[in-house]
Design a protein around this nucleic acid. Structure first.
Lengths: 255, 255
DNA sequence: TCAGCTTAGGTTGCATGCAACCTCCGGTCA
DNA sequence: TGACCGGAGGTTGCATGCAACCTAAGCTGA
């Protein structure tokens, strides 16, 4: 998917984003450009461009004195980010119901739902399908926005997904770790997918919006489950960005 | 507004954004860094940072061959951007209804509505209050998001407002030009403000959301009015970014 | 006349040097 | 003992030079 050779700036952005998501960079820490230059093997000019981009994505925050720090998120912000995704997906579902071009236009969405169904057949329940489900699920959600035909809405969605814990499949790994199996969580989510599909087919925009919001609220309850367990957030993408409790200085890595 | 001395990068961003909104740069035109360097009086390094920022804001698009061009928007995209604002404001209204901390917390919102009311008294109807209304209206809308207490939602709203024609007061100037007076448009909008306020006071989140969406749809109908008139879009902030007519391929360039 | 090649010009992306700034530590004085 | 001050080190923000790239014009040949 990269027609051009990977530029230095793109390499810096990808590497930096991965370092943040993987927790290599601790939330609250100030970033040193020179250290990152050595770590990423790029010059300061493209690196600074990448830093600015990640600030726009919301993963970094610029400091008043200059430079950047890894952003820390409160539980409330994580929950609100998931809610925002639900609002955007709800709006996409409503528009998809109103704007889709008939059954042929829905073929891709139907096909994705069918593929997920097959993953959930009893004889196919294996951990090998984990990554496949994540991919199919994200493609399902993206297809929703393609059907909505609203570029501003799609842009807002992409920006909301820049926070890794707000992604549609962010909590699958957590739930798998908590309950030992991802079947129950996914089965419920898939049932909502089917309801969503039905509402869109029937051009019932209001119901499609409601179902999509309910679908996202499933992630919120998964978040609550994870908070009741110890260290469950470690399995969450970008979980190290979440600052538990009140003390911000603690999360800033004083020790 | 600027506690620190204006940095070169900030000066470039502000100047560039103004040039785009004022129509000095025509939609679709490729930008020459060297020409902008001379025009803005900054070096290429901060200028390139500003170009990247305006791309993130959605005013520019990066070209496959390198460099940037002023983005062109179709009517559909403008309408969808307004719809998106309605969705975000609706969500803010719903959250504000659920989360506000009682009447003292609503004092600012109530006060702004009262100030707008005074602007609409018969003896005060003068063109001098035009700019004041725009300011009060934007503060009213911003206050909605403060009451919602959702940082991700506020971020999404700010990003949506980066498109100048999506701003809450974008069409006031257009309506004034079309009907000769801004009283009718503003009076209807203010009535919706009052309904919104009432729903929030009563913690009726669902109604608050509906009213807020209806409020934004007023801007959409204003857009329709403007499209029926000739050159009415010239009065719209960033109106030169809108590509009228058939040429959809030009405006379709969206990442 | 038109397609294809060549070359010159201009542009972007990147690397690096420099000056101003902030931070932090040690010393000094009340 | 505690607060204030000064300097050294490190960092950021900015300016500019260089090489690769894209674009476009002009020439050649069929």
């Amino acid at each position: 998917m990269s027609p051009r050779p990977i530029s230095q700036g793109l390499a810096a952005t990808l590497g930096l984003r991965q370092m943040i998501i993987d927790g290599e960079l601790v939330a609250g820490d100030r970033l040193s450009e020179l250290a990152l230059v050595q770590r990423l093997g790029v010059s300061r000019t493209p690196l600074r461009l990448s830093l600015a981009q990640l600030e726009h994505e919301g993963l970094l925050e610029s400091l008043p004195a200059g430079g950047f720090a890894v952003r820390a998120f409160s539980i409330q912000q994580v929950a609100d980010a998931i809610d925002l995704r639900g609002v955007l997906e709800g709006s996409a579902a409503r528009l998809a119901a109103l704007r889709h071009g008939g059954l042929p236009d829905l073929a891709e969405l139907v096909g994705l739902a069918a593929q997920i169904d097959r993953l959930l057949l009893p004889d196919r329940a294996g951990v090998d399908d984990f990554g496949l489900y994540v991919e199919l699920n994200e493609r399902f959600h993206n297809e929703l926005f393609r059907l909505a035909c609203s570029d501003p809405l799609s842009d807002a969605y992409q920006r909301a997904l820049a926070l890794p814990f707000a992604a549609p499949s962010a909590f699958i790994a957590v739930q798998t770790d908590l309950s030992g199996s991802w079947y129950e969580t996914v089965a419920l989510a898939q049932q909502q997918h089917r309801e969503l599909l039905e509402a869109i087919e029937l051009r019932d925009g209001a119901r499609a919006e409601l179902v999509a919001r309910e679908h996202a609220s499933l992630a919120r309850s998964n978040l609550d489950d994870a908070l009741r367990a110890e260290h469950a957030l470690d399995k969450l993408p970008g979980g190290t960005l979440i600052r538990l409790g009140g003390d911000a200085a603690e999360a800033a890595g004083v020790g």
